[in-house]
């Protein structure tokens, strides 16, 4: 598989949210607005790339039976670093996302890529896989967030163009499931026609 294919597979063909159905907890939880989805996607991308690098570098030093605990410690460390750095230097973004950052640890997308990809491949491929999957995840979260913000609040990236409220159900949890369901159906249709 060429590196370009390795990178682009995360967007549609193996999109982590729409096709692999990984990391649904943050995908449903934080996507109340396009900006929240975007920020969460970028934070996850950073953790994904960092943990992929470290895991692919030390994979031969980790005995098989303790690989999962080791991976989790590595991922959790990067998540805490993101949290501390964000609170210190980007307090506004932290205000919006702070609650969701610890959720990255339990995001099976990060552990899934460490286990399925980085622990078997070389470092360069792992970085590209992390970037591709991370951007695919960001793309999915931003898209879902934009749909929910548009329908729920009549706004996009915080820029409102209606008075009052939209369809409030899309801001609440059920709207996340409804929106995600329709987006998955849409992606499946696109994949079939290709």
């Amino acid at each position: 598989m060429s590196q370009i294919k390795n990178f682009t597979k995360g967007f549609v063909k193996e999109n982590p949210v729409f096709v692999l159905l990984l990391g649904l907890c943050p995908a449903l939880g934080v996507t109340t607005s396009a900006f929240n989805g975007f920020g969460m996607g970028l934070a996850t991308t950073f953790v994904l790339v960092s943990s992929n690098i470290v895991v692919s570098l030390i994979k031969s030093q980790i005995p098989d039976k303790v690989r999962i605990p080791s991976f989790i410690v590595i991922i959790a460390s990067f998540v805490t670093i993101v949290q501390l750095v964000m609170e210190a230097f980007l307090p506004d973004l932290f205000k919006a996302l702070g609650l969701f950052i610890p959720l990255i640890v339990v995001n099976c997308l990060v552990l899934g890529r460490a286990e399925a990809f980085a622990s078997k491949k070389d470092t360069l491929s792992s970085v590209i896989d992390g970037l591709g999957m991370g951007f695919g995840f960001t793309f999915a979260l931003t898209l879902l967030g934009a749909v929910r913000e548009l329908l729920g609040q009549g706004a996009i990236f915080g820029y409102s163009f209606i008075q009052g409220d939209g369809m409030l159900v899309f801001v609440l949890a059920p709207g996340a499931f409804i929106g995600l369901g329709y987006l998955i159906a849409l992606i499946n249709t696109i994949k079939k026609t290709e």
């Binding site: 031969s60 030093q61 005995p63 039976k65 303790v66 410690v73 460390s77 670093i81």
Partner: peptide
């Protein structure tokens, strides 16, 4: 070659991983 999953190797690996993580944090 992968490191063997012997008791000593597992204990050492987990110790090193957690020590490095604690120091970094």
């Amino acid at each position: 070659a992968k490191k063997e999953s012997s008791f000593v190797n597992m204990v050492m690996t987990l110790m090193v991983v957690t020590a490095v993580a604690s120091f970094t944090l």
